[in-house]
Design a protein around this nucleic acid. Structure first.
Lengths: 194, 194
DNA sequence: GTTCTGCATTAACAAAAGATAAGAACGTCA
DNA sequence: TGACGTTCTTATCTTTTGTTAATGCAGAAC
């Protein structure tokens, strides 16, 4: 139940067995169905979740009620509406499961306690953030450097499982284009291969 | 000379006077001219710089030798080619000054020493990264949500000084468009206002 | 002052994406 | 089985951007 979390923890920090237990014990196991909103629009996000199984999309709402993907999460990632979580402000980001999910939930209060009582928590979070920031920079780089077609090709090369697990209109907005345009791009690629 | 750094430090962490001195003493003051490359393409970045005065652009090189902006730095920000810095790998990001700059340079070795000897360094860096990550997420959100014209308007609303300090072709690629297209957008906006 | 160079603008055309609507494929549920 | 809803596809048209090239402008070098 905590295997993947443990693995992930060890990838960044060398914990003492006692520290490891202390950290893990701060999490609460929780199962949620598909299409479940972990964070609603306008709600203050007060927890960070480790995604043990399943997948989740982060999206924004446009003026005309459309949903535009901002990030796609799969197993092994920590997820939260970070801006809301940090500032305790109403979230403009919605977090919604795309499959039934197993989560390990860390409430903000407990994280703050860990920061004080278990200093390696600081190191762990810093390293997680470093990785996520570098990742975000790469996404930005892809937006300024590549055309939508290239972004799509890079995406299916880097994370082919996303294609199976997320509907295409979700992938399309994640790439910054409309579902119609993604469909055309896919067709162009199909023709190319012939 | 260290005023802005000190201010920035205090915004995130409550330091003891002694800790503050210890942290600041790890930095080396350095002046560089305009158009100076702090990190070359393919070079391993081994330091983090605090930008005390001046401005810097981060850019990528395309296959045909074009420069595409990935980020624009102004006073008060920490800059480095983070992926290269962390992995000690050749950088695909180039850092080049756009004005004469005053830098406070923190070599990687010294940062690692601080991480061990001055635990608040961990807290400070984590909080810096949180802020930068949230910022990067907003940039991504703007790419998936807004049209180039809106991105430009938001940019000049949020950071009007960038317009004065960076040439327009640099701003254009930062917005993910060509200089020609930005010129057209600016014209459209001019016509609108009449 | 004159030349040179780099940058912003404008124009004209090609290529791609957005918007809208209509049809096809698929699973769900009565 | 059949009706419904959702998603993906396809078609048409409009809008925008990319591309290339020409023009204008201003600062730097001589």
């Amino acid at each position: 139940m905590f295997d993947l979390l443990q693995q992930t923890m060890r990838r960044y920090v060398a914990w003492q067995p006692k520290e490891e237990r202390q950290f893990i014990e701060a999490f609460v196991y929780r199962e949620v169905p598909s299409q479940y909103r972990l964070v609603e629009y306008g709600e203050v996000c007060r927890e960070i979740c480790f995604l043990n199984k399943g997948c989740v999309r982060l999206y924004y709402l446009t003026d005309d009620g459309e949903e535009v993907s901002g990030f796609l999460f799969t197993e092994g990632l920590f997820l939260s509406a970070l801006e809301s979580f940090l500032a305790e402000s109403p979230s403009v980001q919605v977090l919604e499961t795309v499959e039934p999910c197993e989560l390990l939930v860390l409430p903000k209060m407990k994280l703050e306690k860990l920061y004080e009582e278990l200093p390696k928590t600081q190191v762990f979070m810093r390293k997680l953030l470093e990785e996520r920031f570098v990742n975000a920079q790469k996404v930005v780089a892809s937006f300024v450097l590549d055309k939508p077609e290239e972004r799509y090709l890079k995406l299916i090369a880097a994370q082919p499982d996303l294609l199976q697990r997320f509907p295409q209109h979700v992938l399309a907005t994640y790439l910054g284009i409309t579902p119609v345009s993604l469909s055309r791009i896919r067709k162009r690629i199909r023709e190319m291969k012939k």
